[in-house]
């Protein structure tokens, strides 16, 4: 008995379906790699608990508890760290030949990158949910309307989408998963700390304060604090006065710049 293979034909909706098949594979990968799962579950939860209870007592914020101030920053940082996952996944697929295998198949153009992006985006939702729950336990509360709260979560998803492209760019430019790790810790890590992520920007020394005020991570942290009705940085720099607008500008700018660059870098790396 033999399976008859229908003549493969060009079909509509091919991009969406191919993207989903690749994305599903990415999600299976997360489930079957305990260490990758820890990145998106244990690590964010640990950060919330550590900062809330270890540093929390030493850091004073105006207008509320440190725990409430902390959550906006920790959401933003976790989303930025999501770039590692995308980049490492892509670099891994490149180094072990999976990308070549996909490219030898009659896939719709863009579905391999699209699948990685969708899987990363879905993967990014898990820590946001877990951290929200964890935040509630340590005393974080949303005090604004449902619409504003929804706006906060929407902003996180939009920021995650932008960060996916940063990850694709890194994953295409850097040759190995190890190189990605290196760049992640020397570049992305400081970016998330020289910001109002964990402490109000005005407590930093002058030059760093300027960096922090204009840092997109600060903007997203601060925008989330505003949207969730949590205590804010109280800085009078323009970005910190208008964090939501400034965040949206950054998100659009990151996508507009990184997406084309990432697609170009990806094509260049693979077509050799």
């Amino acid at each position: 008995m033999s399976v008859r293979i229908p003549v493969p034909a060009e079909r509509r909706g091919g991009l969406a379906r191919d993207t989903w098949v690749i994305a599903r594979r990415g999600l299976l990968h997360i489930r079957r790699q305990p260490e990758a799962l820890a990145d998106v579950t244990l690590q964010p939860v640990m950060f919330v608990l550590l900062f809330a209870y270890v540093f929390g007592g030493a850091i004073q914020v105006e207008g509320g508890d440190y725990q409430e101030f902390l959550m906006g920053g920790i959401f933003a940082q976790t989303i930025v760290f999501g770039a590692f996952g995308v980049a490492i996944g892509l670099a891994y697929d490149r180094s072990n030949g999976a990308i070549d295998r996909f490219r030898s198949l009659p896939l719709s153009q863009g579905s391999v990158l699209g699948g990685h992006a969708v899987a990363s985006l879905l993967r990014g939702l898990l820590p946001i949910v877990l951290m929200s729950l964890c935040g509630l336990i340590v005393g974080w509360r949303i005090t604004t309307s449902v619409y504003e709260a929804a706006g906060g979560y929407l902003l996180m998803i939009a920021f995650s989408f932008a960060i996916v492209w940063v990850g694709v760019l890194l994953g295409s430019l850097l040759p190995t998963p190890e190189a990605v790790q290196g760049v992640a810790f020397t570049v992305l890590f400081p970016i998330t700390f020289i910001a109002s992520t964990f402490v109000p920007a005005d407590t930093l020394p002058e030059p760093l304060q300027t960096v922090a005020n204009w840092n997109p991570v600060s903007a997203v942290s601060e925008a989330l604090r505003v949207l969730f009705g949590n205590p804010t940085s109280e800085s009078d720099a323009w970005p910190m006065e208008h964090p939501i607008v400034y965040s949206v500008i950054w998100i659009i700018a990151i996508v507009a710049i990184c997406a084309p660059l990432a697609i170009r870098a990806y094509r260049r790396t693979i077509a050799r």
Partner: peptide, 12 residues
């Protein structure tokens, strides 16, 4: 997965 990427449909 390869079959699906060849657009054979899930069942085939």
């Amino acid at each position: 997965m390869i079959g699906e990427l060849h657009h054979l449909g899930r069942r085939t």
